[in-house]
Simulated assay, not measured.
Amino acid sequence: MRQAKIVTEAELKRVMAYLSTRRHALRDQTIFAVSFNAGLRAMEIAALKIEDVYTAEGGVREIIQLHTTKGDQPRRVFVNKRLNAALRRYYPTISVKKPCTALFPSQKGGHFSGNTIAQLFLEVYAACRIDGASSHSGRRTMITRLADQGISVHVLAAIAGHRNIAITQRYLTVNDALIARAVELA
């Protein structure tokens, strides 16, 4: 099976600039921020509810409790500073702030399906002419960047919600810069 493309920083900037021109710019930018900063799958993004991400007072939670995951195993997702900032910008745009409401409502006010979120990613990447990217690119990019910074595969597996590190290792790509840094440690 072909893996999703790892998106470069320049490509991500191009995506975010393109998203700023769309009708639901902040919503779409926040969806991408969740993908690239929390490593969530499309189905996990679609399943997020306001209460999962925000406190009753509207503050961003430090930890998001995911209930809908690929393996049906609840997991905790830590919110980094970049994602926190994106979620704080997004909160004022939410029209219905009931706890059980979808975090990312569709145009009709309902929630997106995982497939619809995946289609959004494909549409945006196509518009930005980024070949090989998919809804899994944010997740794979995040995990690979962390690995490149020396984060242990065991920690990466916990972040990704993988029970087996062999699954996590499939996300990782060895490159010349990583090898060069490694041999300098010897």
Score class of each variant (00 low, 15 high):
residue 167 I to S: 08
residue 58 G to M: 09
residue 126 A to S: 10
residue 135 S to V: 10
residue 6 I to E: 13
residue 138 G to I: 02
residue 23 R to T: 05
residue 86 A to V: 13
residue 119 Q to E: 11
residue 64 I to T: 13
residue 141 T to C: 04
residue 53 V to H: 10
residue 36 F to I: 08
residue 34 V to R: 09
residue 106 S to P: 10
residue 14 R to Q: 04
residue 98 K to H: 05
residue 56 A to S: 07
residue 70 K to I: 13
residue 38 A to H: 07
residue 94 I to L: 09
residue 164 N to K: 07
residue 35 S to C: 08
residue 42 A to I: 12
residue 88 R to V: 10
residue 5 K to H: 15
residue 53 V to Q: 01
residue 63 I to P: 04
residue 129 R to P: 00
residue 104 F to C: 01
residue 98 K to D: 03
residue 70 K to S: 04
residue 149 Q to R: 06
residue 35 S to V: 04
residue 181 R to F: 08
residue 152 S to Y: 00
residue 169 Q to K: 11
residue 150 G to D: 03
residue 102 A to S: 06
residue 185 L to Y: 12
residue 71 G to K: 13
residue 45 I to S: 12
residue 22 R to Y: 02
residue 59 G to H: 00
residue 26 L to Y: 00
residue 173 T to G: 03
residue 37 N to D: 09
residue 112 F to S: 02
residue 70 K to W: 14
residue 180 A to M: 05
residue 137 S to K: 07
residue 90 Y to R: 02
residue 133 A to D: 05
residue 49 K to S: 06
residue 39 G to D: 07
residue 126 A to F: 07
residue 93 T to A: 13
residue 129 R to K: 10
residue 95 S to F: 05
residue 137 S to A: 10
residue 156 L to H: 08
residue 154 H to V: 10
residue 2 R to C: 01
residue 43 M to C: 10
residue 65 Q to H: 14
residue 91 Y to E: 03
residue 146 L to E: 06
residue 6 I to H: 03
residue 102 A to H: 11
residue 77 V to S: 09
residue 112 F to A: 06
residue 52 D to P: 01
residue 171 Y to M: 06
residue 94 I to K: 01
